[in-house]
Design a protein around this nucleic acid. Structure first.
Length: 154
DNA sequence: GCCAACGTTGGC
DNA sequence: GCCAACGTTGGC
């Protein structure tokens, strides 16, 4: 089982939506970046766990643990012309974009902020992709060691 | 294939 | 609102 970090603006997809969703499970859709798409299509598997990271908000950081309940699902929002994430280049036969379903395992007892993660950038978290400058990926792997270390901060 | 222009992301 | 970093687009 692998670990991931899923990044999203809380207003678009955040902890509150997950909490409110039936079975605390929702599609994580709308990813329109090829590198992230490849991970969602090929690498992220059912039963994998992920951190939910809130970006572009007052306090960016990791807020929850999620579990993947369904993997490699074609993103149907790309087929809907009325949808903000519509992509005329994607078809049902040849989907261009993929999504996963995620379930809220639990919110963290406290937010692990970007600032706090950065304070370990020279040490334990020197390989954490999230901390790479200019990183804009919305899906990224987290090593087992980094996963355990971040949880130990909680 | 190169590269400039432009759009988006995301922290501050 | 600003700006750096990147991805995408399109002319050549």
């Amino acid at each position: 089982m692998k670990h991931w970090l899923l990044k999203s603006e809380p207003d678009t997809f955040g902890l509150e939506q997950l909490r409110a969703a039936p079975r605390r499970t929702t599609h994580w859709d709308g990813v329109r970046n090829y590198q992230a798409r490849n991970l969602l299509r090929d690498e992220v598997k059912k039963a994998d766990e992920a951190f939910l990271y809130h970006s572009s908000c007052a306090e960016p950081g990791i807020v929850a643990i999620l579990r993947v309940t369904r993997a490699g699902v074609p993103d149907h929002t790309a087929l809907d012309a009325t949808h903000a994430h519509f992509d005329p280049g994607s078809t049902a036969e040849q989907p261009r974009w993929y999504m996963v379903d995620v379930q809220l395992v639990r919110p963290l007892r406290r937010i692990i902020t970007l600032t706090e993660l950065r304070s370990h950038q020279q040490g334990k978290l020197k390989n954490l992709q999230l901390l790479r400058t200019g990183n804009r990926l919305s899906v990224m792997p987290v090593s087992d060691a980094d996963w355990r270390f971040i949880l130990s901060l909680e």
